[in-house]
Design a protein around this nucleic acid. Structure first.
Lengths: 239, 239
DNA sequence: CCCTCTAGGATTGTCGACAATTTGCGTCCC
DNA sequence: GGGACGCAAATTGTCGACAATCCTAGAGGG
């Protein structure tokens, strides 16, 4: 170990990521941003040619996305990008509400409230920047990064893992219904208030704001449904 | 459609499940029950021979289990059954608490409280039977089935999906620390009270009982940690 | 005696080809 | 003209072999 530590940061093996992981990430992004619209069929042969790999690694990537819930697989038929029905929007936000509530609780009680608040504020700055530049896509990305950061801050491996798919699905929702969104100032403001409550250690307010945040989103994306009262989703595409 | 409906129930194609899914399920069970102890290395070649399939479908099954979090994959090294550290126990129950709280809320507000309560009571009967026969393994299985039923009753695809891995990990915990468990009557009683609160629609009591149930389990499995106050897990194996 | 380098074995990663299944269309019979 | 049957194309499922990578053990040199 002749090299002093800290000199060459992040010098990692040329291929630190498996081929399948790279492909999965690319497809994830494509699905998330809407480049691959819901319902499209993904042919293995075609994709293998596009990525210049064999069908083996590609299948692996696809299966990963299937188990994440982004693709649905029909045996001997093909793989399709999931399409989100109104019932799914309800379901996604109900699940997110559960996860983020838990994450917030752990952040509140975990100790480093100020450090976490600082991290979150960073993403709000990104939101504000995107808002001032009138870039809805970047705004949604920053929004999601806020929630991702909150969940990461919880320090729970499993909350993080479970949230990954949910946040991607959320992004799909936002992409699909980008236009019908609220005033950007309001959207930024909601997050700012959330951070303040966290910084103050005000559990009741923080959880209430979080619930309201989710409730707002659900009512905007799937009008007529509600998280708090157990009102049935319009299209119950659930098990 | 000459056949009257309801006559031949569940007549499905001979092989409705993919090969990989069958293998994955078998391995899942083996891991869950402790037949494959934590830390075991799973060689692809060896397993492929045991299951009499090629490495293709087998790899697919393995990758599925990896993404579920039951196996950990070290590139070019092999696949290993995860071993749960005390910090993981904390993490598992924190996540379960979040999921089951949400499921309980939806069950409470969803409508069919009595129907759900009946379903749950069925699993408690299983628990009582296992208890009277002094079969700890069956008791744990029934216990898990209670919670699985609760989450299924929520009607949320995503809660169900996220809970699957958690319940398997819970089973691993119970298997590993089977002996140090509480009085069986108490264990059955806790679930019974939970059902009663659900049937009554008493949200406050139901949620409090659920929290207490989780807190009890965590303190038994990982003494010194607590879910409710944010007390740090002893071995923070988290990100 | 310790460190380094090298060769061996074993395991995973990748590939191309073959087999099984499904779907859609064309044809034939009624 | 309507319906059922059967064929063919396309796609997924499966397989065995080859290549790349990593750990281990041993010899050699300092």
């Amino acid at each position: 170990m002749a090299l002093p530590p800290g000199m060459l940061p992040e010098i990692e093996p040329v291929s630190r990521e498996s081929t399948a992981a790279v492909i999965a990430r690319q497809l994830r992004d494509a699905i998330m941003t809407g480049a691959l619209p819901p319902g499209t069929q993904l042919g293995e042969t075609e994709l293998a040619a596009r990525f210049q790999v064999s069908r083996g690694p590609l299948r692996e990537a696809m299966q990963h996305l299937v188990s994440e819930g982004l693709l649905r697989s029909e045996r001997h038929r093909g793989l399709f990008v999931i399409d989100l029905e109104p019932g799914d929007v309800y379901d996604i936000y109900a699940a997110r509400s559960a996860i983020e509530r838990a994450a917030m609780l752990r952040a509140l009680r975990g100790g480093d409230r100020d450090r976490i608040a600082d991290l979150l504020e960073q993403t709000v700055v990104e939101m504000a920047t995107a808002a001032s530049e009138d870039d809805p896509s970047a705004l949604s990305t920053a929004d999601l990064r806020f929630h991702e950061a909150l969940i990461n801050a919880s320090g729970s491996k499993r909350l993080v893992r479970m949230a990954r798919t949910l946040l991607i699905e959320t992004r799909m929702c936002l992409t699909a219904l980008q236009s019908t969104y609220q005033r950007v100032e309001e959207r930024v403001e909601e997050h700012t208030k959330l951070i303040q409550a966290l910084r103050d250690g005000d559990e009741e307010t923080a959880l209430a704001l979080l619930d309201a945040h989710m409730e707002d989103a659900v009512q905007r994306l799937a009008p007529g449904t509600s998280l708090t009262d157990g009102h049935a989703p319009p299209v119950p595409g659930n098990a």
